[in-house]
Amino acid sequence: MTAKVPRNFRLLEELEKGEKGLGADGCSYGLTDSDDVMMSKWNGTILGPPHSVHENRIYSLEIYCGDNYPDSPPQVRFISKINLPGVNGTDGKVDLSKLPRVANWNRDYTMERILVGLREHMAHPSHRKLPQPAEGQTF
């Protein structure tokens, strides 16, 4: 049995990784409120993948890590409007079970993995040409 990293220390690890700007995969994330000791609300950003309709667009997301994170996945919602399978067309909520990379959630998975997975999803051959709402709209 290996040590099970508790929620808060796990979130601190993710925060540090985010702060160091090591998320080089066109994604970034950070705490919404730097005073939030519980570290529940996060902002995510995805740089639209190249050679797709998303190219050069910046997508904002909000991520909510509940008390059971990372045993349970966080809730993820697009703020920027996007047309993408697995993303609810009215409120932007992401159905993580539709994202191959994180579908079978495991406590080793991170917010970064979700964002990278979403970006891959956007770049997928069958998604990358989907018509998109005008840039700048939000859910």
Partner: peptide, 21 residues
């Protein structure tokens, strides 16, 4: 505060954080 002993404790330090402002 909260304190966590990582896998390789005591070769690595404990992780500690204040919960009280």
């Amino acid at each position: 505060l909260e304190l966590f002993l990582p896998e390789d404790y005591p070769m690595s330090p404990p992780k500690v954080r204040f919960l009280t402002k």
